[in-house]
Design a protein around this nucleic acid. Structure first.
Length: 809
DNA sequence: TCGTTAACATTTTTT
DNA sequence: ATGTTAACGA
């Protein structure tokens, strides 16, 4: 009897799901059932007893995708997914490092900095070492450091041929040493450390290799070099890597993703099979054809053509607006009609290339009273008040965390000014210690020194120590409650004029902690810790296993499996040489109050919660619930689908974005982004652009995006009132010749007297040689009259009306 | 220490 | 236009 899991799969999907145990690449086009194939394969492998739930590793990029995967597995199989290694690269690396923190050279309670913390630390390093902040912007430097780590490079391995790079590497070196002193990591560090742990520690490496017979990777086109190598290392030569991805949807190269990983996969992972999933179950024919033709303009492709058994459907609607304002009006009007025709607004997406574009759109929607949701704002755990509360908690868990200390040492204000902080930093640097240790030794010397600030620091040390004592033996939500009260955060925000929201958020944090404590998913991490305890004593493992007693036969088998592997690992540990962190240099500081003994369960929970806060910054997902139009960037829309989609701002300079035009693959990546936008739509697609647009307080005149002209006209239905009224061509109809594009920025629209100046700014004109363009600026009149025209690909030119022959287009 | 002002930059984003 | 950060004066 064939498994029910395999019902309704198409031949390619079926082939992919049931592949033998060997590495394979699944080229999965948009809407081709990628996630379904991935989760079904996992379920099928487990159901057919080819692997136990604990014997596979599934990696995604986002927590959302990981959750989705677990949910779908649970719905397909009567197994308990707890304990399974399904998660993000960072989440899994974190888990591995917690389990082997000693071998990885990290304190058990090591903290994870977010990007803002990281920049702040780089800045501190630069300041302390007198690096010129003009020449080295902290943000760029932090970016550089992350990029090196993403490439798998420690300071010693970075090739620096010029002084500037050498200096950057030097800052990287200092940054790294400081992180080690404080016991903190950043996102890239998690994966790099985990990679190095596996590379240097044979026992651990063999343990995971023996365990993970099947490794499955989602969104493979988004992997960076380090993630690629990490997968290779953990897979070894024996294990099967099932990589699913779509090179045409690779839109994250700006953060290190390498499309080339797709092409290298076959060779480097000895992939025996490549399967293409080309049947699209999402969109109607016209939409799909537009997407295919569009992406066909890219050279660097693995090659794949989507098809559908659906009908052609509606034509794609193209709208050319006079201004961004008019574009927004049009969208409002159409959204209203969609709603009236029974389409829920939640099924309608409004996409744009950059966040700045949402403003006009939001304004129009708000005025029209249409409900909308914007995705991608400030996330919960990134809010100021939340970060403050978490900083106190971080200090409780690991007082050497300088970032946390600096954040709250004088917040709420307790009379510790820049002066005393500087002194503290000097002392810390002199002693090679963390700020906390410097603060402690200062507070300890009880001399009659009349310096006022000392008292403040002493008070702060006392506060944190007291908090730590208080946190012993209470629950996580109680800890947070204590922090909020004792730190004075609540009092502070109560006094603030607009502090009500912040108080509410703090209460919500307590809530989140309570939920986190009860979340069954949490057990999964505890179990991983049990493994780490296995190297220290078998009792802890047994206890943890009992706590997570299996609910059914399959899980029981899985647990036995885990126990076996843990035991095997234990044996190997005995033989393993001591791990020495070759590059790291500084020894990790002992956790104050904790030493090397395993943390209490309550502390474990705190550590986990802090990891959770760092790795899952909370919903940037707008609240579901009421029916609202979905506003987001095209990037944010990847992976989603809607009944109707508005792709707005399709103008040269905006989409493709002007900043991406210089580098080689830039336009191709922009085109992939456009491909993503188009393929989000199931039934109806609107493509809109505006001739003029407010950007950075200035009016810009743009021409239609080249991508619009790459879509066959027969698929389009033009809805442009401008076009119909004027009867002539617009910037959309310019000749289709490739050329470079120069963006145009105009000060303010000058008032031009009609006398002697027959053209107005923003008007479309035609020139015999340059084709169609748009008037960008004008000056003089009569025989002196000159106009500046943006001819798009032909460039921007000043033309004297006396000589150049221009016609209104 | 705090509040005001001037300068500044402003693609895309997860973890 | 707008929001954020650095420097400055009360």
């Amino acid at each position: 009897m064939q498994s029910r899991l395999l019902e309704n799969l198409n031949p390619e999907q079926l082939a992919a799901v049931t592949l033998p145990r060997e590495s394979a690449l699944i080229l999965a086009g948009a809407g081709s059932g990628k996630t379904r194939v991935l989760t079904t394969r996992i379920a099928w492998l487990i159901e057919t007893r080819q692997v136990s739930p604990l014997g596979l590793l599934a990696v995604t990029f986002t927590n959302k995708a990981a959750r989705e995967m677990l949910t779908r597995i649970s719905s397909m199989l009567p197994i308990n997914t707890r304990g399974m290694w399904v998660g993000t690269f960072h989440g899994l690396a974190n888990r591995m490092l917690r389990a082997h923190h000693r071998e990885a050279g990290l304190p058990q309670a090591f903290q994870i900095m977010d990007t803002a913390d990281q920049v702040a630390m780089v800045k501190r390093m630069m300041k302390a070492n007198g690096v010129d902040e003009e020449r080295f912007k902290p943000r760029d430097t932090a970016w550089f450091i992350s990029a090196q780590k993403d490439a798998g490079l420690r300071p010693g391995s970075v090739e620096a041929f010029d002084d500037h790079t050498r200096q950057l590497v030097e800052i990287y070196r200092m940054y790294e040493a400081q992180c080690q002193r404080e016991g903190v990591t950043d996102f890239a560090e998690l994966i790099l450390r985990s990679y190095e742990l596996l590379a240097k520690n044979e026992a651990i490496r063999e343990h995971y290799r023996a365990r993970f017979a099947h490794i499955l990777v989602d969104e493979f086109q988004d992997t960076n070099r380090l993630q690629f190598d990490w997968l290779k290392l953990i897979a070894g030569s024996q294990n099967a890597v099932f990589a699913v991805g779509d090179d045409d949807q690779s839109v994250y190269s700006f953060r290190g993703a390498k499309v080339a990983n797709m092409r290298d996969f076959e060779r480097e992972f000895n992939a025996g099979t490549v399967i293409k999933l080309e049947q699209n179950y999402r969109s109607h024919g016209n939409i799909l054809e537009a997407a295919n033709v569009l992406i066909g303009h890219n050279r660097q492709r693995l090659g794949k053509n989507l098809w559908t058994s659906e009908s052609q459907g509606e034509p794609i609607r193209l709208f050319e607006a006079q201004s961004d304002f008019e574009e927004a009006q049009f969208i409002v009007e159409q959204a209203r009609e969609l709603k009236a025709s029974g389409i829920p607004l939640a099924e309608v997406a409004l996409l744009y290339r950059s966040n700045a574009q949402s403003r006009v759109l939001e304004h129009a929607l708000f005025s029209a009273g249409l409900p909308y949701r914007v995705y991608g704002g400030l996330r919960f755990f990134e809010r100021q008040e939340i970060k403050h509360a978490l900083a106190y908690l971080r200090l409780v868990a690991n007082p050497d965390d300088d970032s946390a200390l600096l954040r709250v040492i004088n917040f709420p204000t307790r009379g510790i000014g820049a002066r005393s902080i500087e002194q503290l930093q000097d002392a810390a640097r002199a002693g090679g210690t963390s700020l906390w240790q410097a603060a402690c030794s200062r507070g300890g010397s009880k001399g009659g020194n009349p310096d006022a600030p000392k008292k403040g620091i002493e008070g702060f040390v006392l506060l944190i120590d007291r908090l730590r004592d208080e946190c012993r033996g209470i629950t996580l939500p109680e800890m947070i409650e204590a922090v909020i009260e004792r730190s004075g955060l609540r009092t502070h925000y109560e006094a603030e004029r607009e502090g009500a929201d912040r108080i509410a958020n703090l209460d919500e944090l307590v809530n989140a902690a309570a939920q986190f404590s009860d979340d069954p998913m949490r057990m999964l991490e505890l179990e991983a810790d049990a493994e780490s305890f296995a190297s220290q004593g078998p009792t802890a493992l047994a206890a943890a296993r009992q706590a997570a007693a299996p609910l059914d036969a399959d899980a029981a088998e899985a647990d036995a499996d885990a126990a076996m592997m843990a035991a095997g690992f234990e044996d190997m540990q005995g033989l393993a040489p001591d791990f020495d962190d070759g590059d790291g240099g500084a020894e990790p500081l002992p956790v104050t109050g904790g030493g090397t003994t395993p943390a209490e369960p309550a502390d474990q929970l705190l550590i986990q919660f802090l990891s959770h806060a760092s790795l899952e910054a909370g919903d940037n997902q707008a609240n579901a619930g009421d029916d609202a139009l979905q506003l987001m960037t095209v990037h944010a829309a990847k992976g989603l689908e809607f009944h109707a989609v508005f792709a707005s701002g399709l103008e040269e300079g905006l989409f493709p974005h002007e900043n991406s035009l210089d580098d080689a693959g830039g336009v191709e990546e922009e085109r992939r982004l456009m491909y993503v936008a188009v393929t989000r739509a199931r039934r109806r697609l609107y493509l809109t652009f505006a001739q003029s647009r407010m950007l950075h307080g200035q009016t810009r005149y743009n021409v239609a995006s080249r991508f619009l002209r790459e879509i066959p006209v027969k698929l389009l239905k033009r809805l442009s009132p401008t076009y119909e009224r004027g009867g002539g061509s617009t910037s959309f109809d310019r000749p289709r010749t490739p050329a470079s594009y120069t963006p145009v920025q105009v000060q303010a629209a000058p008032k031009i007297e009609s006398a002697g100046m027959p053209f107005r700014i923003g008007q479309n004109v035609r020139h015999a040689k340059f084709g169609t363009g748009v008037i960008v600026d004008a000056e003089g009149r009569g025989s002196d009259a000159r106009v500046q025209v943006n001819f798009g690909r032909e460039g921007v030119k000043w033309l004297a009306l006396a000589y150049a022959k221009l016609d209104a287009a």
